[in-house]
């Protein structure tokens, strides 16, 4: 495997996302204002119920992680399908680099754009809604955050091939992966409330444990609401990141082979 080639390919595919994110002027507005609207609604909702202050923090944390999740869905999972429709996919497939580099580039570019949004959300949370949090274990926190992203984007890479194999119908999976997933992963509330069985099942999605661990670390007052120990959660997340990436690779190879056999995947309008 040619390392320089693949590094350049990653950079090449990340580039349009970075540029695109900065270039389209309507971008910042929508992508920050939008999540802020529902975050604000949930914060006021908690206030109307006289919830403890840290619950408002849960909402901001959930909002930050959800922007990444949405990027995984719309910027990763459904991306190959879009690339096929525009005709880029066949050029990518015929080029010499590993197709994992394309996925990695998409992920890195996506993470860049999303982080700008996420930081804005945190700022608004802190300054407008006066959310306060504690950073007592910075390394653990960062590690959990990174591994959660790795696992989530790995999942997105996996879906990218799956959605393509599925065709137009798969598109609708993204809809399924929004509200119902917000609920079972405990977007704005401690997932422990759903009971151990549901929380365990929800842990298939890396978002669940990532959120739970960060909630415990950032808001020690609510430690009693933790589902598992953050260290344990980090361990599980590492395993799931590896599984996701390996599966992404397998599915990619499968998709490529299937595409060459049937001739359907590289063609517009199946």
């Amino acid at each position: 495997m040619n390392i320089m080639l693949n590094l350049r390919a990653v950079r090449g595919r990340a580039y349009p996302r970075v540029i695109g994110a900065l270039r389209e002027p309507s971008w910042m507005l929508w992508e920050v204002v939008l999540p802020m609207l529902s975050i604000a609604a949930f914060i006021y909702f908690y206030r109307s119920l006289n919830a403890p202050k840290e619950f408002e923090g849960f909402v901001v944390l959930g909002g930050v992680m959800t922007t990444y999740w949405l990027n995984v869905l719309w910027g990763m999972a459904s991306q190959f399908y879009w690339e096929k429709e525009t005709g880029n996919l066949q050029l990518y497939l015929a080029a010499p680099m590993s197709k994992m580099s394309i996925l990695a580039g998409m992920a890195l570019g996506g993470i860049f754009g999303t982080t700008v949004r996420a930081v804005s959300i945190i700022f608004i949370g802190v300054f407008v809604f006066e959310i306060s949090f504690v950073i007592s274990h910075p390394f653990l926190l960062v590690a959990i955050f990174m591994v959660t992203l790795l696992a989530m984007y790995g999942m997105g890479m996996m879906f990218a091939s799956l959605y393509l194999l599925w065709g137009r119908e798969a598109w609708n999976m993204n809809a399924l992966f929004q509200e119902p997933i917000y609920f079972i992963t405990g977007q704005n509330f401690p997932v422990k409330a759903l009971g151990p069985t549901v929380a365990m099942a929800a842990s298939v999605i890396p978002l669940t444990l990532g959120l739970d661990a960060m909630r415990q670390l950032l808001f020690p007052e609510a430690a009693g609401w933790g589902f598992l120990d953050p260290m344990l959660e980090l361990g599980i997340l590492c395993v799931s990141a590896v599984i996701m990436l390996v599966m992404a690779r397998q599915l990619l190879a499968f998709m490529e082979r299937k595409g060459r056999e049937t001739g359907k995947l590289t063609m517009r309008w199946q």
Binding site: L176, N188, F189
Partner: peptide, 29 residues
């Protein structure tokens, strides 16, 4: 003719959104 799609948009999504709120209510009360 596409029951899955129908169920996703007309049942799962709205119910998911409602349950999210109900769960938030539940943890606070």
């Amino acid at each position: 003719t596409r029951p899955l799609v129908f169920v996703v948009y007309n049942i799962l999504r709205p119910v998911g959104a409602a349950l999210l709120l109900v769960a938030m209510f539940y943890v606070v009360t």
